[in-house]
Design a protein around this nucleic acid. Structure first.
Length: 801
DNA sequence: CAAGCGCATATTTTT
DNA sequence: TATGCGCTTG
């Protein structure tokens, strides 16, 4: 995109351009003008007083705490409309950042609806990354790049990291590229350039070479004229720090700044915003601390909690009126989130009816849970409830399989939202790599990717030769290949393969510009043998991949040229969801943020799964609070019906383990919740016992037992500080000792004898070696192994040591 | 260079 | 359990 904002503005029919010009000069007059308008502004109608305040407080820092379903997007878009139509700002004076492309698109759309085509001309509405890219391309030389730098996806990033690791003679096994890459990402998220990383931290990686690796990695990026996602922000910071005049220009340019989902910003984004906001200080951040669920990838809830401190004099507006959910659902969600300590505090209220209570039901195991889920959906379906208004939200994707299996069996149409994205599929990345090399012969990472795909008899040996030449002559791989086919460096066989490839790329490069770009792509895929490769492949998914390739080529037609297309896909890594069909939606809780449904099912509310043990282990109380926010997000997705469930047995890494209901269940206000008896039919449930008959089986599978379980859960007081680990909770209790051991018998086929182990005992495991028992739960032990760390193991694999 | 085996590993995921 | 990876073998 080379569109210059000022040029763009000239083409925008500015409704109040005369006023705008004055506004820039005489703010008093402008304000006076503005005060006249609201009465006649249709867009302000229907806003509640808080929303209106959020819209009309245009000057100075504003924090809008927008609870779930309180009309956040509406405020954001109306605010822009307000700024533009009062003449306080022209569309190109407003910087408006979102997190996802989807959010940006929706905002563009809605602004367009409010103020007409002027909104579509907003050049500075986009994601942090797309705006960062736009800024960087203009000043690329100042950070050592060229303006046509390529943006690396995660796979390129990893490949590059691997090379750097090898270059630095680090043991790749001990320090996998993944780990280092994520460390570097972490530093970038915190706005740290290589030299700014605290030495202690950098030293903790790769035998003290962490810092050196980061430096080397950045150097390689510059050589390749490439930037990774983190750089898109980090290099802006660098650019602005080193060139105050450039910064001043942007500070001046952005009269008003709006930020969506502020609770998800990381440190780099915060610094980025703060630098820009120091100009006019008109920065409005909209967010909800109770929906911050991305701490694990660098989001800092602190940013939102500290807003008033960071921007003195900030006006804080709370949007607490919820327009989405009925009373009980809201009460449940509010009651739950109130248990969090680190929050600014909001109380959602609704004027809607109380509606149905949130239901909680238990199941014997995850299979039965899925069965019940299917039945509930079918009965809703029988009552004409549209499937598209039903969502199943799970904590981890692994839960999806059983549910999908069930849906398939029932013939229930469903769709999985999230999951592997279109542009991340192997065939699409391959196709992209071909295009990238065609467009940019110096794109070594792309070249390497398709070097021998499809197979053309080229292996690692050949690649090493190319690399050697490329490095010594300081030319890109493709250039190296072009030179080497003139010599005898390569074996004849490899040489002919390389020659064919090199010549193809020259040919394809010549086609660009003379033929429509989608046709060029089509030709490339055919001539390279790539399409043929999949046609010959007779595995199950080959047909789907060919279909994807077709869709890929087709989607190119929506872009003016190949370069524009490539820019788009490097920033927009998302699938094109096809809407319309009446299907149940299945997704993770994370993927559900921002969506809403009439009916929401929330299976798997069990301690260890949700709240997730790993979050607890890694982040302690903060982790628990984030999990609780996730629960809150889940509940607030529901308009009319929220149905929680848990299973008492679940397979974890292939082993059956018994589980206890999530502590979150007990944190729900009782008045908003109905405990549901399990359905009375046990035909299917009984089959478990048919296979594994035990004297106790049937009685424990009765509804009464399940109710008892639910009650037991209530009485045990989960959720206090003690809860650590699947096993630890409260195994001493006689209430769960009985059933637990029987489950153990059924499930783990152990002897069922009471555990002979106790806390602190020295033990030996056939696989993990020596360790100390940290906790005992029936036949399951949590052991801190000397070498392998903390693991949960079955006692039958353990000997007293 | 490809197929096959053993081994470790096992959340959440946008840009 | 199941997947994916890296190494060994044909």
């Amino acid at each position: 995109m080379k569109q210059h904002p000022d040029a763009a503005a000239a083409t925008v029919p500015a409704p109040a351009s005369g006023v705008a010009a004055e506004a820039a000069q005489t703010s008093i007059a402008a304000r006076a003008m503005a005060s006249l308008r609201p009465q006649g502004s249709p867009y302000l109608e229907g806003l509640n007083p808080e929303q209106r305040r959020a819209v009309e407080t245009t000057e100075g820092p504003v924090l809008v705490l927008a609870g779930a379903g309180t009309g956040k997007t509406r405020v954001l878009t109306t605010r822009i409309a307000h700024l533009v139509s009062t003449g306080k700002a022209r569309p190109y004076d407003i910087l408006s950042v979102t997190f996802t492309n989807k959010a940006a698109r929706e905002m563009k759309h809605r602004i367009g609806a409010l103020i007409g085509p002027a909104g579509e001309g907003m050049p500075w509405l986009g994601t942090f990354h797309s705006i960062g890219t736009k800024i960087l391309r203009r000043h690329a030389e100042m950070v050592g790049l060229k303006s046509d730098f390529t943006i690396l996806g995660m796979d390129d990033q990893l490949r590059l990291m691997k090379q750097v690791i090898v270059d630095q003679n680090i043991d790749e096994k001990r320090w996998p590229a993944r780990a280092l890459s994520s460390a570097i990402d972490g530093w970038k998220n915190r706005g740290l350039l290589p030299e700014q990383v605290p030495p202690g931290e950098a030293g903790a990686f790769a035998f003290g070479k962490g810092g050196a690796l980061y430096t080397a990695y950045q150097a390689r990026l510059l050589t390749l004229n490439a930037a990774d996602f983190g750089d898109l922000l980090l290099l802006c910071l660098k650019l602005w720090r080193e060139n105050p005049d450039v910064l001043a220009n942007y500070q001046q340019r952005f009269r008003y700044i709006l930020v969506d989902e502020y609770q998800d910003t990381n440190v780099a984004q915060y610094l980025w915003l703060r630098l820009l906001a120091q100009g006019h200080r008109n920065v409005a951040c909209v967010g909800d601390d109770d929906q911050s669920i991305y701490g694990w990838r660098g989001a800092e809830v602190d940013n939102i909690l500290r807003f008033e401190h960071d921007f003195p004099g900030a006006v804080v507006v709370r949007l607490e009126r919820n327009y989405r959910s009925t009373g009980h659902i809201l009460a449940a969600a509010s009651g739950l989130i109130a248990k969090n300590e680190g929050r600014l505090g909001k109380t959602l209220r609704t004027e809607d009816v109380a509606g149905e209570k949130v239901t909680v039901s238990g199941a014997w195991d995850s299979e039965e849970e899925a069965r019940q889920l299917g039945e509930s959906i079918e009965s809703l379906q029988a009552k004409q409830h549209p499937l598209s208004e039903i969502a199943v939200l799970v904590r981890i994707s692994a839960q999806m399989r059983e549910i999908e299996d069930r849906f398939v069996q029932l013939g229930l149409p469903y769709r999985v939202i999230g999951g592997p994205r279109f542009y991340e599929r192997a065939e699409i990345r391959d196709a992209l790599a071909y295009l990238r090399v065609t467009m940019n012969p110096a794109d070594d990472l792309a070249f390497e990717r398709i070097f021998n795909t499809p197979k053309r008899g080229l292996g690692d040996a050949t690649l090493q030769i190319l690399h050697g030449y490329s490095r010594s002559q300081r030319v890109p791989l493709l250039q190296a290949a072009r030179s080497l086919i003139e010599t005898d460096e390569l074996k004849p066989r490899a040489r002919s393969g390389v020659r064919a490839l090199v010549e193809s790329f020259s040919r394809w490069a010549r086609m660009v510009g003379t033929q429509p770009h989608s046709e060029v792509a089509q030709t490339i895929l055919e001539e390279s043998g790539y399409t043929e490769m999949w046609q010959k492949d007779k595995s199950a998914d080959a047909a789907g991949r060919l279909e994807n390739l077709k869709e890929f080529v087709r989607s190119m037609e929506e872009f003016p040229d190949m370069a524009a297309f490539l820019e788009h896909v490097s920033l927009v890594m998302e699938a094109s969801e096809q809407e319309g069909a009446d299907r149940v939606s299945l997704m993770t809780l994370h993927a559900a943020k921002g969506l809403e449904f009439d009916t929401v099912f929330l299976p798997g509310w069990e301690d260890g799964l949700f709240p997730n043990q790993r979050a607890l282990d890694e982040s302690g109380r903060a982790g628990l609070e984030e999990e609780r926010r996730l629960a809150h997000v889940g509940l607030t997705r529901a308009r009319k019906r929220a149905k929680l469930s848990f299973a008492v047995n679940r397979r974890i890494h292939g082993l059956w383990s018994s589980t206890v209901p999530s502590r979150f269940i007990d944190e729900l206000p009782a008045s908003a919740v109905d405990v549901v008896d399990a359905p009375a039919h046990f035909s299917a449930g009984a089959s478990r016992f048919d296979r594994n008959p035990t004297p106790f089986g049937s009685s424990y599978a009765t509804p009464g037992w399940q109710r008892a379980q639910a009650n037991t859960a209530g009485n045990q007081g989960f959720g206090q500080s003690s809860g650590q680990g699947f096993g630890r909770s409260s195994s001493s209790g006689r209430n769960n000792g009985g059933p637990r051991q029987i489950e153990g018998e059924l499930v783990a086929k152990s002897t069922g004898a009471p555990s002979a182990f106790s806390d602190g005992m020295r033990v030996f495991h056939t696989k993990f070696g020596p360790g100390n028992v940290a906790a005992v739960d029936g036949n399951k032990l949590t052991v801190d192994f000397d070498k392998a760390g903390r693991k949960m193991v079955l006692d039958s694999f353990i000997q007293p040591g």
